[in-house]
Amino acid sequence: MSANRHALILTPLAILGCLYALYLVHRPDVAGQAGLAFWAFIVVLWLLTGFAISGLSHLKLKQPVARRAIGLAVPVLFGAFLFFLWEVIVIGAGVPSVLMPAPSAIAAKFSASLPLLRDDFFQTFVKSVLSGYAMGCLSGFLVAIIADRVPFLRRGLLPLGNFVSALPVIGIAPIMVMWFGFDWPSKAAVVVVMTFFPMLVNTVTGLAAVGKLERDLMHSYAAGYWRSLLKLRLPVALPFIFNALKINSTLALIGAIVAEFFGTPIVGMGFRISIEVARMSLDMVWAEIALAAIAGSAFYGLVALIERGATFWHPSYRT
């Protein structure tokens, strides 16, 4: 246990080392022509950071605040180190920015084109993704409730839903553009198609997940359909529903971005990516990718956070 204490000294040491390496790699005599000594230094830093992070993650602390801080520090340091490696290798080895821009270059491009990114974000995420996500999830949920109530619909709708979800996005997107026009409604329609089925299947499964005893219990209370739906079956289905919401949060973003490749007004994340690739300005593409990553992760995280609160009783969250 005390063997892991060395992590508390190694971690600041590793951070200082990395900062120094960053300073070194941006010097004109190192950038693009880093020598063997520099790479040896990076390898040493790698080992040092490895020891420090593994030591940190095994540290057993008494205070809950300190434990929380460490629990947060480990993934942050790990992620930061990956970005550090990316930066150092790309700059040090002089990788052309068309192949792979450095994180610092992407960040610079990102902050320089904030108004553009904001417009793209608003067009793609707020208009297409959020509206499509809401409509797709809600309709999937409602159809699941109906399918659960009417058995023949379940037999008919599930294969149909399966069929629709198997259609490729690049096939649906042009059709949706024909139907709903160039602006965001056609993208929202693609998102609806993509998110409907996961929600339908998960909700139907969740509603059927009620145990026999619990069902008998409701029957013994002479509880009607709606009462046992509200008091028993929907709570039981909640973890399944949240699963669908999480899956859909990332699916929706992918769907909207890809759909914008097939006709769009001159704004939107997918539009920008396709245009900037053609113009070989890959740093802008990467800035859009960073934006999509941030938006997607934040969206997923928000849903996961709500899930934690709503299904605190589930065995995977119990404390």
């Binding site: 145990g211 005893l213 619990e214 008998d216 219990l217 409701m218 013994s220 209370y221 002479a222 509880a223 009462r227 008091k231 028993l232 709570p235 299904t311 605190f312 009783w313 589930h314």
Partner: peptide, 29 residues
Amino acid sequence: RDYGFVFQAPALYPWRTIQKNIELPLEIF
């Protein structure tokens, strides 16, 4: 509602507190 049934397993609803679980039949009635 002439009888109360106790099953082999408690079959309490994990999202309800003990108090709320005991109130469940009354809520339904």
